[in-house]
Design a protein around this nucleic acid. Structure first.
Length: 291
DNA sequence: GTCTCTGAGTTCGGGCATGG
DNA sequence: CCATGCCCGAACTCAGAGAC
């Protein structure tokens, strides 16, 4: 049964699908084939009932509708691959309908919690006398400040470069877009301080444009998203509740919304790096104001 | 215009490796 | 030992395109 998986992978590769897609499709397909095997089902003869059972399995397994839909989507792709090779007769596409997305609430951080989060590395920085660890605390504080203030995603943070900053503005450069955000006076001062401290630790840092450097086994290399993730893991442990970069980003969006009126949404979605207004509107819809 | 699906990219958690 | 990179599987998010 699992031999189909190898054929399928070769098929996807021949279509020059991106490695991400191939990987995800194969994970999904392997899961499907394992399900059939474990339950002693026949793919060809019992396809309709297999699909009914499998959809139920997915539904109970994945509470996120978007995840469920992604699984169904790749299952559909796999089944039409089988159909093209006459391994199955038909792809019953009504059995492969995606579920409707329902709204899930986003809980932005309260101001109190936001302050707690920001103060973790600030306090460390003030407390620590060791030169290197002090610098790390300063770096991590600046990273959290940047995310809280600019609402950046982790990937956008690790790609920040000094030359993207001009006066009080920073350009956030993505594959297909650039947006310019303004920096507060306070943030500029912190970044300036961080830059000077960095020079003390890394004498040659002038030759590196990346803003956020690592101190471990890869000196003079920019940190990765993983390090950002770990910064938030540490913060979570200290404050006693779970906080992620995404939560900070959403909190920033909500703060912006509180200040801006509806018609300015148009500007806001560009500023926050959404390609369409719809995405932001959907997100806004999910905010709850209980906190 | 708005909704749906798809392909691709990002985030997350956790294990292991490495250089200081 | 620490910080952090690298890798993996899995979940989640996003954007383009086509359907309605």
């Amino acid at each position: 049964m699992l031999k189909y998986l190898d054929y399928y992978r070769a098929h996807l590769e021949s279509l020059k699908k991106s490695p991400h897609t191939i990987k995800q499709y194969c994970i999904d397909t392997e899961q499907f084939l394992n399900y059939i095997q474990k339950n002693n089902l026949k793919l060809k003869e019992e396809l309709d009932s297999v699909l009914i059972g499998y959809k139920q399995f997915l539904e109970t397994e994945y509470t996120q509708i978007s995840s469920f839909n992604r699984k169904v989507s790749s299952l559909k792709n796999f089944l039409s691959f089988l159909q093209d090779r006459s391994i199955i007769n038909t792809v019953p596409d009504d059995a492969l309908k995606q579920n409707k997305l329902e709204k899930r609430n986003i809980h932005p951080l309260s101001q109190t919690r936001l302050d707690q989060v920001l103060s973790v590395y600030l306090n460390k920085y003030r407390r620590i006398s060791d030169r290197e660890f002090g610098w790390i605390a300063l770096r991590n504080f600046c990273v959290t400040r940047v995310i809280a203030e600019l609402g950046l995603k982790p990937i956008e943070v690790v790609e920040m470069k000094w030359t993207h900053i001009h006066n009080n503005e920073i350009k956030v450069i993505r594959t297909k877009s650039v947006r310019t955000l303004s920096l507060s006076k306070s943030l500029i001062d912190w970044l300036e301080l961080y830059k000077n401290e960095t020079k003390m630790i890394f004498p040659l840092c002038d030759q590196v444009d990346y803003m956020w450097l690592g101190i471990g086994n890869k000196k003079y290399q920019p940190i990765t998203e993983k390090t950002i993730e770990r910064i938030f893991q540490t913060i979570s442990k200290e404050v006693g509740f779970k906080v992620t970069a995404t939560a900070l980003r959403y909190s920033k969006i909500q703060n912006e919304l509180d200040e801006k009126v509806d018609e300015q949404l148009n500007l806001l979605y560009i500023q926050l790096g959404y390609a369409r207004k719809g995405v932001l509107v959907e997100r806004v819809d999910r905010f709850t104001h209980e906190s």
